[in-house]
Amino acid sequence: MDELGNLSAFLKVVERGSLTSAAAALHCSASTISKRLKQLEHSVGATLLNRSTHGRAYPTEAGRAYFDQVRTIVRELENARESVRSVNETLEGQLRVHLTPGTGQMVLMPLIFRFMREHPALRIMVSIRPDGHDVLHRGFDLSIHSKDAKEGEIGYTSIEARELVKVDYVICAAPAYLAARGTPARPEDLSDHNCLVSVRQASPHQWWFRRDGFEYPVNVSGTLEADNWTTAFEAALEGLGIVRMMRIGDLSHPKASALVPIFTDDVVSGRSIWALMHRMEPTPRKIEAFCNFLRTELQGQRTRQD
């Protein structure tokens, strides 16, 4: 009996919520998943899953307790098996990556496409949604997002956070907007302008600046509040207002040259792009390679823009 295979099938069903979805993720049939679950339940002597008439599967109380116990064990076994492979072996299997909107679409996806071309045997599942690091407990290998220093630290000891790159903000507007409304002479003038707000940034209605070694906020508001940077960026391109963007990635966008930077040297950022993952020893090779690739590419972008 393939006990590791049975455990992996059980974990995948709990994470995906159905036998069919788990089978698709593991590249086997639903009947194979069902057989593995029966073997596992017989082995432990308890019913681990309840099946609904609509094809859904939910862990029983015993199943939830078992899931919490074996999840880390299975990951460690899989990592141990992977660690004995040659470092020159082709990356393969599946990498499950969560990205947040804005940063994911404008900064990370072009890099992920490049990584896929370099490692064609590796399957990458990408989900772009505004969830936080809790997605790691729903089957993702990595959660990558930008985080401001003002948002505090990540309070989970089971999660490893790797800083990929520090980024700067830049205040931008289209020439058409500046021609119609005038260019702000100093940060305080932003209070009299139409500022396009991304509500998922830290302090979205207070943009921070530095003068003579001191940091201070400027209250901003406008006719658009968006839950991702992409929308605010597109609105700025249309000449609708002033936007605060990350210098890295955003300014590499083909359309970004149409925007004029303002107060470049005065903007306070403190923002970084982080990779969050389960704390494991050793780190799976595909995760290590992916993080190293992103760090190299992102830091290269920052160097070219400085």
Rank of each mutant, 00 (worst) to 15 (best):
D192K: 14
R200C: 04
F233W: 03
P204I: 06
Y156A: 15
S257W: 04
V165D: 01
P204F: 06
G213H: 04
L164E: 04
G241I: 05
V165K: 05
K147L: 14
V243Q: 03
D266C: 03
G182T: 02
E238C: 10
H133D: 11
R244H: 00
W208P: 04
N219G: 08
G239H: 02
A161I: 11
W208K: 07
A235E: 11
A202D: 10
A256T: 05
P175M: 04
K166C: 12
K166W: 05
D141Q: 09
D168R: 14
E215N: 14
N194Q: 05
R181L: 01
G182C: 07
D148M: 05
A161S: 15
R210I: 11
T231P: 04
L251N: 07
V167M: 13
P261V: 01
A258G: 04
K166M: 10
T223G: 02
S252N: 14
S198Y: 14
G249C: 03
E188N: 01
Y216N: 02
A236G: 11
A149Y: 09
H253C: 06
N194M: 02
I144K: 00
F233S: 08
S127T: 11
K147A: 13
M245G: 03
E188W: 03
R138A: 13
S146T: 10
S269M: 00
S269G: 08
S257A: 14
M246R: 10
G132M: 08
E234N: 09
R244D: 02
S143C: 15
D192R: 14
G139H: 07
E225W: 03
H145Y: 13
D131S: 15
R129W: 06
R129L: 12
W229T: 15
A149N: 06
L142Q: 10
A176I: 12
P204C: 09
I144M: 07
A174G: 07
S198A: 12
Y156V: 08
T157P: 09
D192E: 15
E160W: 03
H133P: 14
E153P: 01
A180Q: 11
E163V: 10
D141I: 03
S191F: 01
A149F: 08
L178H: 03
I159P: 08
V197E: 02
R186D: 08
G222A: 01
S252A: 15
E188V: 07
T157C: 05
Y169E: 05
A176P: 00
W229M: 15
D131Q: 14
F233D: 04
V243C: 09
D131M: 12
E238I: 00
K255V: 00
F209M: 02
F233I: 04
G222E: 05
A179W: 04
V220H: 04
R186A: 13
S221T: 12
V268R: 10
